[in-house]
Each structure stands twice: as structure tokens, then as C-alpha cells.
Design a protein around this nucleic acid. Structure first.
Lengths: 338, 338
DNA sequence: TTGAAAGCGCTAACAT
DNA sequence: ATGTTAGCGCTTTCAA
């Protein structure tokens, strides 16, 4: 592996000159530069980024810290799509990407700061951590630049990107109300997710605007899991046969809800309308296909990266970004005839 | 950020001793070690991996080079699941993971060797590259340890992991034959994929064993794309109305085939049986749900990482691994009554 | 059991 | 326009 010294020797100049020539500094003779470039190519020289980073104290590397990079993620693809966005943006801006995944076991061993400092990432994007995650506190204290995905918290070195969950939920429920539904249940995620709170807010606000009283027993938690949502939906529909529509805080849970409703012999959408949230691939393929609120996960990752690199490069500006949702009408909702 | 020198000063010893103490060398007084560890914790010292790697010439980092880390990948999740496997295995073995994604444009700028050398990965796993990719040649020449996914090529520094595609395809087609189908079409991928050739081989072998002549015009390429598969299937069924079954080289293409068949008014599975390949999430949710050949993409990534790290650590042994498939019967296939 | 010194490959003052 | 020197934070001989 050729080093800068090999190039220097061959060219009969000092390593400094080689460094300057190859890094495009102006104070070097054009002819020398050309010769050096030539030789570098001959020797297949490529700079040792480790050495460079060590002296420059810059790695041009960002980390994507994922809690739970698991095969189950295949179902909603959230992490994958965020990753694509991060990767594309990082690539465009010349940053390397290292993937860091944690689980509660690993968190015992290393603190957030250790994890991040060791790997010499300049900044980090956090995806998939819950609001009661011990790392979160550390993140806010730490001065390592960080962008949180779907956790609206800020500090000097921390920003976030999220979706307008409240508005999305509101439009979902408004859609159901407009179809004449009066008794609308909600299958929410869990209390350790900000997005769940926000979607609940949207649900309530929609009801309020139409003058319908909020009924707490119409809302249950499905933990963002398909199976859990299925059992919870079954219980909910049993207890409240008056429900003619459901708003599910994720498409995956909506899949569970659909299954529960089918098992109970409810015709979809005639006897029960269901709206999801996310617009995952499955939602277009299920039977009935799912009316849902689309959120752009790729963009979430992309914008997170943009915000992060802005911070890294000292561009002052907003450290938060909220993306809009899109309402998608499919087959799982219809007018209420009760 | 505390360095090893800070710890040394505070402990009143040399940096050498600190290094030895923290790295578990035996030739250091246990009391000194304890004191040093104490101080390291106090100072929140964590070693600069860059500096360490620079001197040790080891980075304990592997790269996952993905060609086409794109949002479209959401549909089959191949890359995501491989990534999960790679990540888990790398994590268990103490390797860092950097994600490198290329496209034909980037390949113009940098050669494979540059790309890999610069990032100082010790070895690399290649996922999603086609057999006519210019990088492939470089990989085989290069002496950077590498594991190819789904490309059965070997050299001193290159191994591979793949699925037994031929056997999988054979069992798919045999299933159809056992159901009494005589005229079985195949929607294959494209010629730049090894797996396509292998699946075609399996298709042919199954036919041969049952004494059915191979008919080349029954096989078309769907480029592994849903839409392309849909149009190709439509054309194929039009031209060959005698076909009562299709073997699709991917579930995604099977989705396209299903749609084409439905549009032509064919009842599934009564009038057309379809078998896919992959067992993607969608295959369980489509209507009809898809009979398919499951391949374990997570394991593909996991085994690739194991093979790679074995090479890196000098463990001689096989540099290839072929995983088995599993046949999954669902609703899209039934007996032929023609 | 410990320390001094050298050096990994690079960049950046500071000369010249 | 180019070279000299120092040093990033660490590990590793070699000596004591």
C-alpha cells in the first residue's frame, strides 16, 4: 500500500508538497502538481483516511444509531427507508456512514458517549429509540451533534426531524367523520413513543371539531405490533359493538385489526372502516387495501442528515424539521350506514 | 476528550503502562491496573480507535458494499435482511460495520480498490452486484478479503455465500408437476444474475425428471421487477393459453404475474397456479397468498460475515456456504383439472 | 513491573 | 513554491 512518502520519494519532493498538491492547495507549482498526480496514480496511492482524521480531528463520518435493527423491521421497513435517505444524503455530501445498533444488553456495557466517541463519528442520527431509553438523557447532555428521529427534543447540539403526526391523525379521523362515523375507536402504539401521544392528540382534536365527545375507553394500545393489535381490536370491538370505524396508529396494527375484524365476521369496509398510518408496502396489497396516512420515511432520513451536516459545518439555522403527511384513500373505508 | 496521556499523568505512570493496563496485559501490577482503570473511568477515557488502528494496522471494521441501496428495495427487503444478519454477526464478533453504497455513477469516480482501501475496512461483503459489474473483476484480482452474496466465485481472498437456487426452483416446479400441471411457464429474472441461471436449471431438471420436454418459449425474463413481470406474464399467457401454472423467480414478480392473470380474468389458483421464490413479507398478505420457496436472507448476511471474519482471522476453512431453501405451501397453487 | 523512544501516515505552522 | 519540524493518540520494541 503506497503511502504519501512513497509518492514523495518518487517525485523527489517532500511529503508536504505531495499533501498540498493532492489536496488542491494553490501554493504549489502546476507542473509539480501534475507530476505528483501522475505518480500517485502510478503507485495507486490513496490517502490513509485514518491518519488524516487523526491529525485533522475530522472524520467526515456520521453514525446512524438504531435501536433494534431487527428482522421484524422488515414488515414496516421504517428503518430501511430512513437508512436509504441517510445514506443518499450522506453520500451526496461526502460523509461516510457507520451503522451502530444497540439493544438494552449492549447499553449495559457502554454509555452513549463511549459508543459514539470511540467510533469517531462527528455526529449521529438516532432512530428507533423510545422516550424512556436511558440513552436519551445522555444524548441531551452530551455535546455530540445529534439529530433525533421522531422525538421532538432540542438542545444546543441536538435537533430532530419528525412527521406532523397530529395533523396526519387528525385528517385520518376527519375522513372517518366525514363518512358519517360517530363511534370511532383508536388502536394506538404505546406511551413510550412521542408519535403515539401526537396521534392521539390529532384524534381528539378531530372529534372535538365535529363536536363529538372523547371516550377514553375507545382507545387501546397495540404496542405497534400486529398481533397485539389484533387481540386488542378483538377485545375492543367485543366491548364496544357500536364502533363503526377504527383509526390505527400504524398500518401494521391496521393489518392486525383487519384480521381481528374478519375473524369476528365483520364485513370490511361495509361494517367497519379502518384507517392506518404510515403507508407501508403491505397497505396497498392487503384485502381490503388500506386507507392510510402516508409518511415519508426516506425523507425523514434525508432531512435528518441534512440538519446534522448543517450543524457539523457550523451553518446556523433551524435544528428541526417537521414533514407533512399525505392522505391516501383506498378500500378499507366507506360511508357509515348505521 | 481525555486521552491516554491524561490518564497517565493523573495516575503518575507512563502512557505505556496505561496502555498495557487497559488492554489486559499480564505484565502489570494488579494494583496499578486497578488504579488506572479507576482513573480512566473518572476521566471518561475511551481510546481513540483511529490512533489505535493507525499503529496496529487493524481496524476491526468490515464494509458492506451495496449496489443500489434504494427505496425500491423496500418491496423485497432483501438488502435490509442481509444487513440485519451482517450487523448481528459483526456485532457479536466485535467488528464495526460501515455501509458503502455505489451506483454506476460513483463507480466512474473511484475504483473498487480505492473505495475499499481508503475506508480501511479489513474485509468486505458485496451485495446486489450483477455479474457484469466492472467491480466484480476488480474484486477477484484484489487481495482484499471479500465475500460475495449470490455470486458463486472464488479466489484466494474471495468467497461466497448463496442459496441453493437450483434445488429450490426444482422443488417449486416439482410441486406444480405433482399437482398435475403439464404446461408450466417460468418468469425468470435476468441474465446478469447467477441466481436466474440456477433457477432455470432447477426448472429444467424438474421437468426432465418427470419426462416433460423443455419448451424455451415458456420462459421469459421479468427483470425481477413487478411491472415488467406483469406485462411479460400477460404476453406469455396470451401466446400460450395452454399454460396452467407459472414458476416465478421472485415473489415480487409473482405479484406482477398475479395481477396480470387477474386482469385477464383467470381465476387463481383454479385456472392458474403460481409459485414464487423468496418468501417476502408480501407473499403472505397477497390474495391469493403465495406458495413460494423461502430463502433465508438474514442467514445469508450472517454467514457471509462469519466467513469473512474467519478469513480475516486466518482460520483456514471453506470460503463458501450454500444455504437450503424451504418450500411453503399457500393458496396460489392447486391441482390441475384440465 | 515500568518507562523512554520510535513510529503508524498524515496535515499544518513556520520557515526559507 | 517548497521543505523542516512537530504532533495527532496510540502501541510496541527495547532497556532498565
Amino acid at each position: 500500500m503506497a503511502t504519501i512518502r512513497d509518492v514523495a520519494k518518487r517525485a523527489g519532493v517532500s511529503v508536504t508538497t505531495v499533501s498540498r498538491a493532492l489536496n488542491g492547495y494553490s501554493d504549489v507549482n502546476e507542473k509539480t502538481r501534475e507530476r505528483i498526480k501522475e505518480i500517485a496514480k502510478e503507485l495507486k496511492y490513496s490517502p490513509n483516511l485514518l491518519a488524516r482524521s487523526l491529525v485533522m480531528k475530522k472524520t467526515k463520518t456520521i453514525g446512524l444509531l438504531v435501536s433494534g435493527l431487527k428482522i421484524e423491521g422488515s414488515k414496516d421497513n421504517f428503518t430501511y427507508e430512513v437508512l436509504c435517505g441517510v445514506n443518499d444524503c450522506a453520500g451526496q455530501l461526502g460523509y461516510e456512514l457507520v451503522l451502530i445498533s444497540t439493544d438494552s444488553q449492549k447499553q449495559q456495557e457502554k454509555t452513549y458517549n463511549q459508543l459514539v466517541q470511540e467510533r469517531k463519528v462527528e455526529g449521529i442520527i438516532l432512530q428507533g429509540i423510545k422516550t424512556d431509553d436511558p440513552y436519551l438523557e445522555e444524548v441531551l447532555k452530551s455535546d455530540i451533534p445529534c439529530i433525533l428521529i421522531d422525538i421532538p427534543m432540542e438542545s444546543d447540539s441536538v435537533g430532530y426531524v419528525t412527521t406532523d403526526n397530529k395533523d396526519g391523525a387528525k385528517s385520518a379521523v376527519t375522513h372517518l367523520l366525514d363518512l358519517g362515523h360517530k363511534h370511532i375507536g383508536m388502536i394506538n402504539g404505546h406511551s413510550q413513543a412521542f408519535v403515539s401521544q401526537e396521534r392521539l392528540d390529532g384524534y381528539q382534536e378531530a372529534l372535538q371539531e365535529k363536536g363529538i365527545a372523547f371516550n377514553g375507553s375507545y382507545v387501546v394500545d397495540g404496542a405497534f405490533l400486529e398481533e397485539k393489535a389484533e387481540t386488542e381490536t378483538a377485545k375492543l370491538l367485543q366491548k364496544h359493538p357500536e364502533l363503526t370505524a377504527l383509526f390505527c396508529a400504524s398500518d401494521l396494527m391496521a393489518m392486525g385489526a383487519i384480521r381481528a375484524a374478519k375473524k369476528m365476521g365483520r364485513k370490511l369496509p361495509e361494517e367497519l372502516s379502518i384507517v392506518g398510518f404510515d403507508n407501508i408496502i403491505l397497505s396497498a396489497y392487503s384485502t381490503p387495501s388500506l386507507t392510510t396516512i402516508a409518511q415519508d420515511r426516506y425523507q425523514l432520513g434525508f432531512e435528518a442528515t441534512k440538519l446534522l451536516t448543517d450543524m457539523l459545518e457550523g451553518n446556523k439555522g433551524s435544528k428541526r424539521k417537521v414533514l407533512n403527511t399525505t392522505f391516501i384513500k383506498r378500500e378499507s373505508t366507506s360511508e357509515n350506514h348505521n
